[in-house]
């Protein structure tokens, strides 16, 4: 080469600095979810939305215990009252306290939303993951079933199920969950299919991992991202189906309040007593919006290309 030769270290070098100082702190073992949470926190709107949802859940649990009113008792001396110190959100056409009704409605919406979401996940992810991982005939059979579920109008189907199963909170969430998992199944299958192709699954097989270990330890943890994101959009979706059912009088059995029913009733008095529709509609919209923002935040957090 040239007249200058520079001695080069022949030892195996290491070099490079660790990603950041905190990693060297042995007391804080980092976990996958810790990293996700740190990324999620960076999106302020999502974080506020998450706190809002936590607040709503707390409200739905604690509210019924401490509220001075209940949702059943009519008070014909206090119909259509405007918001006051006694009734913060006024009263409805039966003289019931609006705040109480909204909180019960919230509780029911959350139960239906999370319950239906859980049912969707259980059925959808199981079917999708099995179809995607094992492929072949099983995939064919399962996915044709999914196609059929997808083709059927899910609102009508849940309506029929409600009629058959009866009208209570549990049957309604079941009806919604049972009819809307097809999208989740397709998503889970697509996720599993693409992860199955990645080298680390082959690496796991070459290390001797069994199918169940591969599915539960390597495939699913890496597939949950889009599934959770989708869930955070499906929960408000289920809430809307429930209000839709209530709106046409097939939802939760009165006098138990439901947001759909509240909005339905409120819409009749929209000119005379607008607070009857305004308050339920606003809380409903805010709740839906909060879930959507959390979904957005989750999507960003799961995007591994983001730096920490």
């Amino acid at each position: 080469m040239g007249e200058f030769t520079i001695p080069v270290n022949k030892n195996i070098d290491s070099g490079g600095k660790p990603p950041s100082a905190e990693h060297s702190d042995k007391t804080t073992r980092r976990s996958y979810f810790g990293v996700l949470w740190r990324r999620f926190k960076r999106n302020k709107i999502s974080l506020i939305s998450l706190y809002f949802i936590v607040f709503l859940i707390a409200l739905a649990i604690v509210g019924p215990l401490i509220l001075p009113f209940d949702y059943k008792t009519m008070d014909y001396t206090a119909l259509y009252q405007k918001p006051s110190l006694k009734h913060w959100m006024g009263t409805d056409d039966g003289g019931r306290d609006m705040l109480t009704l909204i909180i019960y409605g919230l509780r029911n919406a959350l139960i239906v939303g999370f319950g239906a979401g859980l049912v969707e996940i259980l059925i959808g992810v199981t079917i999708g993951a099995l179809a995607g991982y094992f492929g072949g005939r099983l995939d064919n059979i399962l996915m044709r079933f999914v196609d059929i579920m997808f083709a059927l109008p899910s609102f009508l189907l849940s309506l029929m199920l409600v009629v058959v199963l009866g009208r209570n909170l549990f049957t309604i969430l079941l009806a919604i969950g049972l009819t809307s998992w097809a999208g989740m199944a397709r998503l889970a299958r697509a996720q599993v299919l693409s992860i199955k192709q990645v080298d680390y699954i082959e690496a796991a097989r070459s290390l001797g991992a069994s199918n169940s270990v591969i599915i539960f330890r390597y495939v699913l943890p890496n597939a949950v991202g889009p599934i959770f994101v989708s869930l955070s959009f499906n929960i408000p979706g289920a809430m809307m189906v429930e209000s839709g059912l209530s709106l046409i009088g097939l939802g939760i059995m009165p006098p138990m309040p439901s947001w759909g029913a509240l909005i339905n009733i409120g819409s009749r008095f929209i000119l005379s007593t607008p607070h009857l529709i305004l308050y339920p509609a606003i809380t409903f919209a805010l709740t839906i919006l909060a879930f959507t923002f959390v979904g957005d935040g989750l999507r960003d957090a799961f995007d591994a290309k983001q730096s920490d």
Binding site: M1, G2, E3, F4, T5, I6, V8
Partner: peptide, 9 residues
């Protein structure tokens, strides 16, 4: 006459 240590390396 490549001379810079990086080039040489």
């Amino acid at each position: 006459r490549a001379s810079h240590p990086y080039t040489v390396a």
